[in-house]
Nucleic acid binder design. Structure first.
Length: 470
RNA sequence: CGGGAAGUAGCGCAGCUUGGUUAGCGCGCAGCGUUCGGGACGCUGAGGCCGGGGGUUCAAAUCCCCCCUUCCCGACCA
């Protein structure tokens, strides 16, 4: 089974992905290059991802809010590194209301600046802290080489922005989001294992003092960054004068974090679990967990299918029933397989005569004849097993294709097929240049003792994971 | 912007080297019929400024020149 690979137009990709999931629109008389249309099947997956992330974000006491799409250009320039990092990829609006604007506005590439504009008004006292805000929004980054889902010029995401009274608190919160929101969702819902660690200086977010990342391995051994959490220190607070009165009567700048996860996760899901027969959705994220395919509406099969659907719904399974008996059975089977529905139940008069239905698992391709009375139980077992099996497969792939090496040359060789781990002291400026020259990048840095690396940690204590990436 | 490749029906392609009836094929789409427990089949049909402009020629999808667009590799990146 080949691992699907997403390209900018999804053309040398199995055709069904653009029919079923999404399409990158690139026509000269059509939408802007690199933007994408997400079809209902793909969007339903995003809605599930949103819900799972949102629940966990709220569990960290973060509230949702909304800030403007347009940002005055001058806001971006207030933080030196930030403007330098984003300038080339900004979409700038120069006209509005039929007239040239006195000051151009940019379409937000991320919202640190506008949000800090408001934070500086909202925060007065240490009693206002921590201030924990999240926004669900779209952002625009004018990408030179867009790639369906992975790097589209417009994408959907959530961006969290927080203010804290001290650096340690901010740091702890950035890591809490990394673990309790991102890693938990990606592992437990998307069934994709990740490596978490710190980005190298070169890969750090513009304006941050530290960038934390989650790196996953796709079916072809390349790395994909699944999400990010930044410690911003006091950089934006200084630029926007976001200060507060401390408990002892002094004044200080707030310490901040920002963190985000995007529609890229849909792409990750496709590339981590998909195969030649289409998508394979982990049950936890599947908009439809079980489809009941009515083979033929004869001898009470229709009623049996309805009854089973009711039973499954009552058991909390997201179930859909396919009664399109005028469409051939094979066609319908393939359609649900392409969409990655984890479990399919075939209900028809032939099996029903024996009191049975057929339960098919998408992840393993297994087909079992099960008594109608035991079908609901078989479905819930299958959903649990499929969720675990997909995570185990992805985990096994990552283990099998990760190699520990001790030289840069060996790292490049290992990166041809997967991840390479090597002592971080080899990845100094010259080492990173060498790797980058071979299309290999430092994905993350971790401590050899498993603890979180701190900025002041010497390279001797760190291990670098390097790989080719999307 | 540097290096490669490609633009012909909604999608995927052939035809071009060696100009020559009305530009083909597969999928998809529409109609009718037979099918229907793994992408069914037959018949009929609709659908083309052959990327654009200029040139050569009796004649250009095909040869020449210019332009445009897109894709892949690199710089950027959730």
């Amino acid at each position: 089974m080949a691992a699907p690979v997403l390209t900018s137009q999804a053309d040398d990709f199995p055709k069904w992905y653009q029919d079923v999931i999404a399409k990158a629109e690139l026509a000269e008389n059509g939408p802007v290059r690199g933007t994408m249309v997400i079809r209902p099947t793909g969007y339903a997956i995003w809605e599930r991802v949103q819900r799972e992330l949102d629940d966990r974000i709220k569990a960290c006491d973060v509230d949702n809010a909304y800030f403007p799409l347009f940002i005055p250009q001058s806001f971006l320039t207030k933080e030196a590194e930030h403007v330098e990092g984003f300038s080339p990829e900004l979409a700038v609006v120069t006209h509005g209301g039929g007239e040239q604007l006195a000051e151009p506005v940019v379409v937000r590439p991320t919202s640190e600046t506008v949000i800090n504009h408001f934070f500086s008004k909202w925060v007065q006292s240490y009693r206002d802290l921590p201030l924990l805000i999240n926004q669900w929004a779209n952002v625009v980054r004018w990408e030179l080489r867009p790639r369906l889902f992975l790097r589209s010029s417009e994408f959907l995401w959530q961006e969290g922005h927080t203010c804290h009274a001290d650096g340690a608190d901010a740091r702890a919160f950035a890591l809490r989001i990394l673990d309790e929101v991102y890693e938990a969702t990606i592992r437990d819902v998307l069934a994709i294992p990740v490596l978490t660690g710190r980005k190298s200086e070169r890969e750090r977010f513009p304006g941050a003092i530290a960038t934390w990342t989650l790196e996953a391995m796709m079916g072809d051994g390349k790395a994909l960054q699944m999400g990010t959490s930044h410690e911003l220190g006091q950089n934006f607070a200084r630029a926007f004068d976001t200060t507060f009165s401390t408990a002892d009567g002094g004044t200080d700048y707030v310490w901040q974090t920002s963190w985000g996860a995007t529609t890229r996760l849909i792409g990750a899901l496709i590339m981590a679990h998909g195969d030649d027969a289409g998508l394979r959705l982990p049950p936890a994220v599947a908009p439809v967990q079980c489809v009941i395919v009515l083979v033929r509406d004869e001898d009470g099969a229709g009623a049996a299918a309805d009854a089973l659907a009711g039973e499954l719904r009552a058991a909390g399974v997201r179930v859909r029933i396919d009664t399109r008996v005028d469409v051939s059975f094979g066609r319908r089977s393939v359609e649900w397989e392409l969409k990655g529905i984890p479990v399919r139940i075939e209900v028809g008069p032939r099996d029903l005569k024996e009191g049975n239905v057929t339960v098919v698992r998408r992840d393993a391709g297994t087909k079992d004849s099960v008594a109608v009375t035991a079908a609901a139980a078989a479905v819930s077992t299958s959903l649990t097993d499929a969720q675990a099996a997909l995570l185990a497969q992805a985990g096994e792939r990552m283990r099998a294709r990760t190699t520990s090496v001790s030289t840069l040359d060996e790292a490049v060789e290992a990166a041809a097929t997967g991840f390479a781990e090597l002592p971080a002291k080899l990845t100094d400026d010259a080492g990173e240049d060498f790797l980058n020259g071979k299309s290999v990048t430092i994905r993350c840095l971790r401590r050899t003792d498993g603890e979180r690396p701190r900025p002041e940690d010497p390279a001797e204590d760190l291990v670098a994971t390097v790989a080719r990436s999307y």
